[in-house]
Design a protein around this nucleic acid. Structure first.
Lengths: 187, 187
DNA sequence: ACCTGAACACCGTTCAAGT
DNA sequence: ACCTGAACACCGTTCAAGT
């Protein structure tokens, strides 16, 4: 009993398309790393050896490309936050997590800026796509607040925006972070 | 004894050029206000009724245009900081000044972002042109630090970057500012 | 000395034509 | 179903030709 070819029409082509997608993501990561987040989709297409239209089929906009590249990181950050959710020291856990976030944002030139812009624009795809990580961070924040280590008025959105600002500075991150902490910390 | 025409060659033309410059600045301000900081120099040229080349003659780059528009504000901020330099309460003076800065940054959509980017790039014209204001702010900061109201490790650059982050948030500025203050404040 | 606007390179985006 | 690449709109930037 052969599987109906209409159940998965064009399967081989679909897998080709999937390989194209993976290849494009790979190339995008390379070019982001080499030239920052502002590379042209045309350049990604050329380097991947496909037509521009193919890029736009998979990633209808430069932001969609960035979002696809970043979604792995967002997921890793979400998982990392979840793993820290029952740490002994909730405030230290939050800070560790913030350090990871900032380090990730610093990986590609232009990323903190793009990401911060997206975070101020609810219609952005990046904004929606990082909500999982954001929610996980919120849990971390709330625990730290309940433990009395962090001020109760602080909201995740505000905290993430400030973290982005630190990531943009690129230098003195640890100093700025400690400054921020003494700001939001209670003791 | 007529003034040598070679001393100020083409004086009348120069004043025309000056008027062009003023007109371009005026139009730029209008378009910034209407459409944000990302307007095309071509659009400014068209609306001002001059050729693109004229815009580039006066402002060789979009950033130069923005810098020219902002330099008045920078100057006003510098003067404002100087006026507050001998206030009774140095910490309150610093905070007042920060509020003004943030309000100014919020005037044009896209300005906080551009300005923050410039502040992270020493080769930027905006970076150099806002140094007067920056220095004046530094005096304000130092006085507040000497009075014991602000942590001594805080540096102007860091403070300004954080102020920009607050301006980008556009909402809850007062809350974020108070959070920041309790962070950098000592008492 | 200054202005004009055509021209070029470049990027985002679309779509008719192919397979 | 997916891919290609020409084509269009748009923006930054330059420069030969005008006055």
């Amino acid at each position: 009993m052969s599987r109906s070819s209409t159940a998965f029409p064009g399967t081989s082509r679909r897998s080709d398309a999937l390989r194209n997608r993976e290849r494009l993501l790979e190339v995008a990561r390379e070019l982001y790393a080499a030239h920052g987040t502002d590379v042209a989709l045309r350049d990604i297409a050329e380097r991947a050896g496909v037509g521009v239209g193919t890029v736009y089929r998979h990633f209808p906009t430069p932001e969609a490309m960035l979002e696809a590249v970043m979604s792995d990181r967002f997921e890793a950050l979400r998982v990392g936050a979840a793993a820290l959710a029952d740490a002994h020291d909730p405030r230290a856990a939050l800070l560790d997590w913030l350090r990871t976030l900032i380090a990730d944002l610093a990986e590609y030139r232009g990323l903190p800026s793009s990401s911060l812009a997206a975070m101020n624009d609810e219609s952005s795809q990046l904004y929606r796509s990082c909500h999982g990580m954001r929610d996980a961070a919120e849990v971390l924040l709330r625990r730290a607040q309940q433990a009395g280590g962090i001020r109760p008025e602080l909201r995740v959105g505000v905290l993430l925006r400030l973290a982005h600002a630190l990531a943009m500075a690129e230098e003195n991150v640890e100093l700025m972070l400690s400054m921020l902490v003494t700001g939001i910390g209670r003791s």
